[in-house]
Design a binder for these strands. Structure first.
Length: 211
DNA sequence: CTTGAGATGCCCT
DNA sequence: GGGCATCTCAAGA
């Protein structure tokens, strides 16, 4: 089954300009594409989190603009990639018009093409563990801080339209690892495909709501 | 490992 | 007593 040109076309900037909450939901099922030399690595996005501007106490922009978070203040549809814990790169997508620092963290991907390369990049783990977390996915797709600011409509890294399959349901929960965020720690701003084995934490800590 | 907030210290006027 | 360079250190999805 081959993708049509339409399906392969990158999502336009307007898709990303609608605010992190809507975009986080709508990115589920869309396809991340990475060109590595002559090879394409692709996968369906199955888990995201919204980070919603300066008011959001979990958002990197909460203290205003700094050197690190500057790309969040720029145009939508760009990669905001940062390094954390001395170990992981994290891929975020800027999701509001310039000046509004909102972004979606891409947290898990279901590998589709280029799985052999992903295994090389990640080590020999279960296929469903190749990209089942924000740090893992950056490793599997060879995404690093060098991609910070990259336009996600052109190679080597872009996102194309995709849909959920029959029977796939979106659920939401609190975001992972934001306990420090006070009033915002419990907001249900994490979205994922219910039951998908590539999601980073299959078993939720708390009850879920249908999204 | 990086970041940035806060502390500390230094020199100016 | 303010502005700024430097340090220090906790915390980070």
């Amino acid at each position: 089954m081959h993708a049509t040109p339409e399906q392969r076309a990158p999502l336009p900037e307007s898709f990303y300009a609608r605010g992190a909450l809507r975009v986080a939901r709508d990115l589920l099922g869309c396809v991340l594409v990475r060109r590595l030399g002559r090879q394409l690595l692709t996968g369906r996005i199955v888990e995201t989190e919204a980070y919603v501007g300066m008011e959001d106490q979990a958002c990197h922009a909460r203290m205003g603009r700094t050197r690190r978070n500057a790309v969040m203040f720029g145009p939508p549809g760009r990669a905001y990639v940062y390094f954390i814990y001395g170990v992981h790169d994290m891929l975020n997508i800027v999701c509001a018009p310039a000046g509004r620092p909102e972004a979606v963290l891409v947290r898990a991907i279901e590998p589709v093409e280029g799985i052999a390369s992903m295994r090389r990049l990640r080590g020999l783990v279960r296929p469903t563990a190749l990209a089942s977390g924000p740090g893992k996915l950056c490793r599997a797709f060879a995404i690093t801080r060098r991609h910070n600011g990259a336009d996600l409509r052109v190679p080597p890294l872009w996102v194309t339209h995709g849909t959920l399959q029959r029977g796939e349901r979106v659920v939401r929960s609190a975001r992972i690892g934001v306990e420090y965020a006070g009033k915002d720690a419990d907001r249900a701003w994490r979205f994922y495909v219910d039951g998908n084995p590539n999601v980073s934490r299959a078993r939720p800590a708390r009850p879920l709501r249908r999204a």
